[in-house]
Amino acid sequence: MNFVWSWPVIAFYIIALLTLCCGVIMLSVRKVIYMALTIGGVFIGASALYFLLGADFVGVAQILIYAGAITILIMFAIMLTNHEATEPGFKWSPKNIAAAIGSVLLAVVLLLAIRSTAWPTATTSQTALDGGNSNPMAIGLVMFKGYAIPFELVSILLIVALVGAVILAKERKEDE
């Protein structure tokens, strides 16, 4: 494999290293608030990769929704609820062993699937993918021309979930 150093390659390795570090720290720390912070780091690392690949809109959406809203929601939940600040230490139990085997198997399957797929290379031109439009415009055109009905269905699903959450929260209040 011929390997050429360029700034994007260096940036990729730095981002990947930081993202993996955040992931490993998240699994190894015992304090819940550290986990919330490092999972935010993982989300930001993922969005940096999207930026590197030229998917600006996906990268921004990743930061806005995951690193912004969801991580902050997790932090609010941690800070406002009553629970142990630190989790108990790690012990090997049958459940943990099964989970470990399962995740190794999943990793192997994913690796095999990734290696056996023919990915588009640099020879596939950018204009073939986005039709020469800017990134958000290309996504908008695809979403509202090709996939208008699935998009609307997903938004109905979201509204139903929202209403459901409100109803669930309301019922609990009346019980008290």
């Binding site: 912070l37 935010g40 600006d56 921004v60 930061i63 806005l64 690193a67 912004g68 902050i72």
Partner: peptide
């Protein structure tokens, strides 16, 4: 949008 996304990180 990039500006809005970044200002959400400051909240952390």
């Amino acid at each position: 949008l990039f500006y809005l996304a970044l200002s959400a990180i400051t909240i952390h």
